[in-house]
Amino acid sequence: MDWQAIGLSLRLAAWTTVALALLGAPLAAWIAFSRRRWKFLVEAVVALPIVLPPTVLGFYVLLALGPRSPVGRLYESVSGGLLPFSFEGLLVASILYSLPFAVQPMAASFAAVDRSLIEASWCLGASRLRTFQRVVLPLSWPGLVTGATLSFAHTMGEFGVVLMVGGNIPGRTRTASISIYDEVQALDYAAAGETAAFLLVLSFAALSLTYGLHRRAWSPWRMS
């Protein structure tokens, strides 16, 4: 088993999950509560990675992060390095790739919070932000856990985007799924099988946790 690749994947998935929790929650809140007419466009953009071939997404991310793009140049001037074929570049791509898996469950559970609880909070003097922290977030935790679990599992298994943006540099951008591909190419089926089994078990565990949680979802706070 390629522990180096698995370690890299775990690290990437962990960072992606943290980043998506911080960036995804405000975006999900906006989607859940905004009444803008063009909201559907934002929703469509967020959902794109679900249907887009990973190579297409990876291609555009590669262009957007490249040394000739404004983002790439800015990053180069700040850090001195390049985004493509680096762990940081991979992280940016992963965040975009897993965005819907974090944002959609979060937005759904924010929107499911009883409107009168939010209004009660306002009438008791709490600002919108405080209402979000004290009422919406605590009542949406199954959606938050689902979002985090799905982004983690999804990042663990990504292949196409990683290959396009990160390439295949051992220790830097070679993730578990790429390592499996390499091992199969090298006809080392035993090693590929071990890594594959690891990913299978991990994904199954993550999804079991999510669905198990939703079975009992809301019950801790249910009114009657």
Partner: peptide, 10 residues
């Protein structure tokens, strides 16, 4: 005072 009281369940 809301009709269904809107108590914070948590």
């Amino acid at each position: 005072l809301f009709q269904d009281y809107a108590l914070f369940p948590h």
